[in-house]
Amino acid sequence: MALETVQRKCCKQCLFSKNKIVSDSRKAEILEDCEQNNSHFQCHKATIKGVKGTCRAFYDKCTNPAISAMLESIGEVEFVDID
């Protein structure tokens, strides 16, 4: 299993904030795509820097809390500052 890298905090243009850089319809498409492909939304700030980093709000709101807690407890999740 690969280590999951997650933003330590939400960026100022987070997909889940009023300052998001996409429309509500595009947000819905992104989240639907993540669900259909069983993937996590990568923070745009991370991708601009060429690194993988799951959006913190996505991690908090859209992942299974029990599975996330288990992965965190065995060291499979790393919280990082990318912004």
Score class of each variant (00 low, 15 high):
His44Cys: 08
Leu31Glu: 03
Thr47Gln: 03
Arg26His: 04
Lys27Cys: 05
Asn38Val: 13
Glu29Lys: 01
Arg26Leu: 05
Glu35His: 13
His40Met: 07
Ala46Gly: 11
Ile48Ser: 13
Cys34Leu: 10
Ser25Trp: 14
Cys43Glu: 00
Lys45Met: 14
Gly53Met: 13
Ser39Tyr: 05
Ser25Ile: 11
Lys45Ala: 13
Asp33Lys: 06
Ser39His: 06
Asp33Glu: 12
Arg26Tyr: 02
Asn37Leu: 07
Lys52Leu: 07
Ile30Gly: 00
Lys52Asn: 09
Val51Asn: 01
Lys18Met: 04
His44Arg: 05
Ala46Lys: 03
Lys27Leu: 07
Gln42Ile: 10
His40Tyr: 07
Ser23Glu: 04
Cys34Phe: 08
Glu29Trp: 01
Ser23Trp: 07
Asn37Met: 06
Glu35Ile: 09
Gln42Met: 13
Val22His: 02
Ile21Cys: 11
Thr47Trp: 04
Ser23Gly: 06
Cys43Pro: 01
Ile30Trp: 00
Arg26Trp: 05
Leu31Thr: 03
Asn38Pro: 06
Asn19Asp: 14
Gly53Pro: 06
Val51Arg: 02
Gly50Met: 13
Asn38His: 15
Thr47Lys: 08
Glu29His: 01
Gln36Lys: 15
Ser39Asp: 13
Asp33Val: 03
Gln42His: 12
Asp24Ile: 07
Asn37Phe: 11
Ala46Pro: 01
Phe41His: 01
Cys43Phe: 00
Gly50His: 15
Cys34His: 07
Gly50Lys: 15
Lys49Leu: 15
Phe41Ala: 01
Lys52Cys: 05
Phe41Cys: 00
Glu32Asp: 10
Asn19Thr: 10
Glu35Asn: 08
Cys43Asn: 02
Lys20Cys: 10
Ala46Trp: 02
Lys27Ile: 03
Gln36Trp: 11
Asn37Tyr: 09
Gln36His: 10
Glu35Arg: 14
Ala28Lys: 13
